[in-house]
Design a protein around this nucleic acid. Sequence first.
DNA 1: AGGACCGTTGCGCCT
DNA 2: CAGGCGCAACGGTCC
Length: 688
Amino acid sequence: MNLTDFDDEVDELLFQQLLGGDTTATATAASDRDDRDDRDGDSLAALDDDIAATHAAIAAALQAEEDERHAELHMPLPTSPHAAAVAAAPTATAPTTATGDDIELHHELKAPAPPRAPPARVMRALVWFRRDLRVHDNLALLAALRRPGMAVVPLYIVHRPKIMLCGVNRFQFLIESVSGLSEALAARDARLLVARGDAEDVLARVLPAWGITHLFFDGVTEPFAIARDDRVRALAERLGVVVETTSGCTLYDLQAVIARNHGRAPKTYTSFLKAIATFPPPPRPLDAPERLPAPEWLPSELFQQVRDYWSDPARATADVAAQVEGLAGPEQQFTLPEVTEFGFEPAEHHSFIYGGESIALGILNEYCKNEGRVIKFEKPKTSPAETRPSASTTSLSPYLYFGCLSPRTFYHRVREIQERHKKASSAPPVSLDGQLLWREFFHCSGRANPYFDKMEENPVCLQIDWRWHAVPASEDALSDDERLARAQFEAWKEGQTGYPWIDAIMLQLKQEGWMHHLARHSVACFLTRGDLYISWVRGLEVFQERLIDHDWCINAGNWLWLSSSAFFSAYFRVYSPSTFGKKWDPEGKFIRKYLPQLRKMPVKYIYEPWKAPMTVQRAAGCLIGKDYPFPIVDHKIALKRCMAGMKASYAQRVYGTSPLEHIGRTVHAKRHRDSDSDTSDDAHDGQY
DNA sequence: AGGACCGTTGCGCCT
DNA sequence: CAGGCGCAACGGTCC
């Protein structure tokens, strides 16, 4: 969420209108990133903004305080020499809490309108919630609360994602999760503000208008999101706002893991395990705060402050006015939007997955009640044909992605149970804690590679001559095979392949936004190296749009894996589209649930209904070719074609080339080892 | 250096 | 019937 391309126009505006000047040292603990935004140094010298000047003074005064602090939160010590990470730390003072007054009353007493500008010399924290939609073990929130006497403004910024494809199921889940967070904060005397718009635009508007002195947020993994966060950090520093980031979205400091592994993400799970074994175990989760400081202002007052600030003749432009008006939603109350306000059609039927921290913790508790199930968990033995996931797998993945559930809470709960039954417990990679480590494994790769979800630019990705990879610009330019590939892709996407096992899974994805891990494997193999020989990138896009638990790193990692483009190379191991599901569901119950037209098909033909005699089809009320499609490919023939293509691609051994230097270095080394590969890029790759 | 061994999750045929 | 094995043979990692 909130990941948009940087808007140059806004940047220009900031140059002209916001404070330039010395930035305070920020306490960043997320990583050893030292590639500071290059706009930092050359901001205009016009210090025409008294508010910002006040902020700078406050920030400078806080510097001494900052220097005394040392890392105490959950941030592993940086190992890179470039690391500038110093965690904020808490001088062990209880957060200022409300006195228990009724909030409404409190606000009424505050009326009428507040001063035009917020009073100076007040420390005011903005806690920017992103993918940490929880109050338990929320490192950014707790970091803010540990500052004595600091006012706290909790903010979520929502908009329709622009970079990520996002379907209604995931957006709905997000809204529900933000709603849950809002309730959790309300129960602690606070009020979550929900702003609308591009995150950078919104922060540029509210940080100065509200007199924010400290910005807290929890870091994420995706390179494009980190770039966005770096721009926000630069913006805040120009405003004299102290920025503190935490790393609560993963168990380990993955940047440190990459550094320990000679600057490259581990390519195998075992080497990843070895790398993390040299680090201390993930810290224990922290409890939710009991109280937050009561809000200083009503939402409408906060909106008024923004409007007043930006209607100052020195700052106002038409663009700014428009951005400010849309900021707080209807009635300017910073309320939670409905999915329809972002152009989504509401889903016909709600997925069985509902968003929110309390639901996540409930699922975790319920799952862990059955300790035998926890300790014996072996992922390859769980069933891809479950219509409700909780019987075998936990279905906690979407909650992990949005941070409704802390990975540390999940990890330590599972490890405690495993420790009590040491001998009987399964172990990574197949165990439950092993699944959390797979998440870290793929996040490592994604963290190190901005082109992880691409083929040509991706150094770890074997180049394969997939069909329907580059989509021709015009209809006229399509070859016959491209037309066929497009039709086959659409059939796959909509669950119309004629293979009930594949189609039922694709319909489950569409309706529920979720599939079992092995079900994902089945359909991914079918699309790519198993049957259709269509580009994994097309499949990745469909999963990205439709999965509630979509995670950029994990999705790309698994598509690379399944298509034998990276990590996995036994391409001749192919999932059968008609027999694989039988192992878990010989009756075809799963198929019957998602494909009602096949409900009466006898067990004998449920996985291969085209083989049913006409009399059987008539009796079942399902004529193949009319009520349910014929298979779009013959598996045996399709498989032969795939094997030939894969064999040729593996013989070529051509990998992607990153436009970035530091990734190019890796390509260079790899190419060098492969004596028979094309070395024409070496001159280019060698230039640095 | 180069050979051995391993790799979360296959299939199909044999006993 | 569950379990073993051949399939045809990859890249990463270790020794």
